[in-house]
Design a protein around this nucleic acid. Structure first.
Length: 422
RNA sequence: GGAGAGAUGGCAGAGUGGUCGAAUGCGGCGGUCUCGAAAACCGUUGUUCCGUUUACGGAACCGGGGGUUCGAAUCCCCCUCUCUCCGCCA
């Protein structure tokens, strides 16, 4: 969430910036400022009240020790009133703080100045494109047909044992998955990332920490019996490892990579968007996360972007990079690059990665701070990116590389698959 | 799942109703000594909020929440988590 002081000192700027995200914050921010005034007022009254009570309590202590019981009793009566007042003020303060916090949690992150205006995906700006769009023969088939032709992914079987959106990978299909995971992890390790295997379920605090809660509650699978959420991305457990920490400035950046399965309810999705591997309830992803100094986070974002581009080059997939417009950006992000690969049989661009800088939005929720040699702790910046999400990569590989002899595996992947065609 | 023990500052670890935000040790930072370093010695060392604003004053925080009391780290209740033993089990 946004820092209260930032909102106070840059009220109009915040409102203007949020309008880029098509979010009219005027009312909320007026309310925030009003509540903050009430909060400070109430806090002052309460503190003064407690000060008086504390002093009297100390006096009583002394009186008891010196045996002046009567005087002590007189003072006791005096505190009764103060006590009631303190209780009232405290209740009021808690109420104000809760209301204030509830509103702050609902205000999205302000976008970076380079974020273009726009309402939806069509308004995103294509800032880079590379790789040749494959010319497929007329009888080229989409990946779901390739999958059954070679018997490498079984959607029906997934329907049977779980439901739609839970495919079963078989034989070389399963091996290809494993190859991609290892390829992605090894590549990240070479770039200095540390590998983690996080839990696939997180508690409520973690959900709030990275901003999935309360904003996207309905998008996560919820395990009610234990009050856990299945992770929609490894970003959640990985970033939350740093929740409530004050680290040394010289320890930054933390570079983490994790492979995990991801679970998304995808409520509201339908039609051809969910065909085949295009949109699943469970999928695999390798995620990179960095915790960085505010002064360096945008440089880091560019590095992460270049890193992801490098992966796609090695996979020999045509891709483009989009600068997301305000309307298409996530709640928590300040700047996001989406990567899309071209899936030639569907003739569609498929999103395979999203690389974002959250600035201090997540760290403010998580109380993730760092300390310079001198001075107070300050909020760190958090960044993350998919590197990469598997299903759509698989879809594009299958479609783009289909030949009469089978599907060709890109060179970089062969050491991992152990076969060059499937 | 059953039984028991516990949760204190960066870490270790005291504290069982009254100047306790908290002894002590380690670590960290500053200094003395030294050509320099080590050792030794001295000092210092948490976070958040409020008010005045380099100074300073006040409040809160000893897993979380509630209660008792003039006063709670300390007593009571609830929750969460951790550990040990038994059971079950990849």
């Amino acid at each position: 969430m946004l820092q209260l002081n930032y909102i106070k000192e840059n009220t109009q700027e915040v409102i203007n910036k949020l309008s880029i995200k098509n979010f009219d914050a005027t009312e909320m921010i007026t309310k925030v400022l009003d509540l903050d005034n009430k909060r400070r007022e109430t806090q002052k009254l309460l503190d003064d009240n407690l000060f008086e009570s504390n002093n009297i309590a100390k006096e009583i202590g002394v009186l008891f020790k010196t045996g002046k019981q009567n005087e002590a009793t007189t003072l006791k009566d005096k505190t009764a009133k103060l006590k009631i007042l303190s209780k009232e003020l405290n209740d009021k303060l808690l109420l104000i703080e809760k209301e204030l916090n509830d509103i702050l949690l609902q205000i999205p992150n302000t976008p970076h100045h380079s974020v273009p205006k726009g309402k939806h995906a069509a308004d995103n700006i294509n800032i880079h494109q590379e790789g040749d769009i494959p010319e497929l023969p007329i009888d080229a088939i989409p990946h779901w047909d390739i999958a059954s032709k070679y018997d490498i992914i079984d959607f029906e079987l997934g329907n049977k044992i779980t439901g739609a959106g839970f495919p079963v990978y078989k034989g070389k299909g399963a091996k290809l998955q494993r190859a991609l995971i290892n390829f992605f992890l090894d590549s990240a390790l070479k770039q200095g990332y540390t590998e983690f295997q996080p839990p696939l379920m997180v508690n409520e605090d973690s959900g709030y920490g990275t901003g999935q809660l309360p904003d996207k509650e309905g998008q996560m699978y919820y395990v009610g019996l234990d009050n856990y959420y299945l992770i929609p991305t490894a970003e959640v457990p990985i970033t939350n490892m740093f929740r409530n920490m004050i680290v040394k400035a010289e320890e930054l950046p933390f570079k983490c990579v994790a492979y995990s399965s991801c679970f998304r309810r995808e409520a509201g999705s339908y039609g051809k968007d969910v065909r085949g591997l295009n949109r699943l309830h469970q999928f695999d992803k390798v995620e990179i996360v960095q915790i960085q100094h505010p002064d360096k986070s945008y440089q880091t974002l560019e590095e992460m972007r270049e890193y992801v581009a490098g992966l796609l080059r090695l996979l020999e997939l045509p891709f483009r990079i989009l600068r997301l417009c305000g309307g298409d950006m996530s709640f928590a992000s300040a700047l996001t690059y989406d990567f899309e690969v071209y899936s030639a049989a569907q003739k569609k661009w498929l999103e395979v990665s999203s690389v974002s800088n959250f600035e201090s939005f997540q760290s403010n929720r998580m109380k993730l701070r760092f300390r310079e040699k001198e001075g107070k702790p300050q909020l760190a910046h958090t960044l993350n990116g998919s590197a990469l999400a598997l299903p759509r990569i698989v879809a594009a590989l299958l479609e783009n590389n289909q030949t009469n002899e089978g599907v060709k595996i890109p060179k970089a992947l062969i050491p991992y698959t152990g076969f060059d065609i499937l």
